[in-house]
Nucleic acid binder design. Structure first.
Lengths: 206, 206
DNA sequence: CCCGAAGTGGCACCCAGTGTCAACCCAGTC
DNA sequence: GACTGGGTTGACACTGGGTGCCACTTCGGG
């Protein structure tokens, strides 16, 4: 299996190979997960299928679930960046709506893969739970910005319940839109669904 | 350890003893969890500490986490009941706010225990994940009612993104209020925090 | 060419959770 | 009082995820 023998001027060789191996592993694992289901696939199978030892696999990923979720790790950061770029005087709800385009674009890039992925999430309780942990981390990343917009920042850097509530509510809308999209088997338009959902919670002009 | 020797006219003897044992087990386990932490406590320790075999413990609870969460099992149902009792023409957001009193009342009953419980949740990633699973189930229980109120029910009994979005948003507010309460170490008033949070997302008269 | 750091595989081990089975407790019955 | 049948229990073995440890290789730099 030729792994694109080095040519690019790279930021460290070891790091590059490490990334390549990680990518390869997620590919192999995701393939197995989608075919046999997440729980029915053992880490030994993944390791064997990738031609690597079980022990080494756990050096690349902290857990079986991490194989799936590490690739989505940076979505939260990109979300926060997008939010930071919105004008300060804009309605926070509208700002959140626009920053969510980071996610919807992700969905629209390759719908079939995304669809399969979410379907698997839906089927496996533990994965769904992990997914919520991620949403929560996104929340933590977005809250500081929204807290400033709401003027809710306190002396010690803490904030009241409003900023988390608003961000959490927006993420709930994102999730609801995603669910509806999933139920339509990818036929509906995520963007429209998201507008609908957010408008139902808090009417605004997007 | 006297277990209130039978006096009440009971719905089946076996069921009563089973409930008693379950209660005893949760007490023992919660005590260990709060003192040593959730992950640091093994099921063997819990079993030994309760004078029962490991295998039997797993006959009472499907998993270690279930020892904690089974006692909150019926909160979702009570939430749905409370929601069903609200007048049909009321603003759904207000109806949700009022039905949440089921939960806030729970908090105010014995704050110190609740506080310790939530703190433990906060410290343990896997527990936090389980907690989110519960919130999700609550959402599923509340959505049908809200869908009717929004007139969003479709032919096949499915619904669009709005009902889940509204319910999810409300639950996000509940969670935000809970968090703020936790940060105040139980000193703040949950009800006020909840009002503040829900008002920030969608202004209304409670 | 050698040295040290990082990566690797193998092994033993811990812990959660499940299947199985023999023993047992406790009705109701003859 | 022995018989029997359902539900409960404990012991044991086993799977599967995850970790600590150690010996071995690989690879880049002096």
């Amino acid at each position: 299996m030729p792994l694109e023998s080095s040519a690019a001027p790279a930021p460290d060789l070891r790091e590059r190979t490490r990334r390549a191996v990680r990518a390869e592993l997620t590919d192999v694992a995701l393939d197995l997960f989608l075919r046999r289901g997440f729980e029915a696939t053992t880490v030994d199978e993944i390791a064997a299928s990738a031609g690597i030892s079980r022990r080494s696999l756990f050096r690349y990923f902290a857990s079986k679930e991490a194989i799936i979720f590490d690739s989505l790790q940076d979505v939260g950061e990109r979300l926060a960046e997008a939010l930071a770029k919105r004008p300060r005087e804009e309605d926070p709800w509208v700002s959140l709506r626009h920053s969510f385009e980071v996610v919807t674009a992700y969905n629209e890039d390759n719908p079939e893969r995304t669809l399969a992925f979410w379907t698997m999430l839906e089927e496996t309780a533990s994965l769904k739970a992990r997914h919520f942990e991620h949403l929560m981390r996104w929340q933590q990343l977005l809250v500081p910005d929204i807290a400033v917009r709401l003027g809710e920042v306190e002396d010690d850097g803490a904030y009241g319940p409003c900023a988390p509530a608003v961000v959490g509510a927006a993420l709930a809308c994102l999730d609801a839109a995603n669910h509806a999209w999933l139920r339509s088997r990818g036929k509906a338009d995520v963007v429209l669904l998201l507008n609908e959902a957010m408008h139902a919670v808090r009417p605004a002009e997007f």
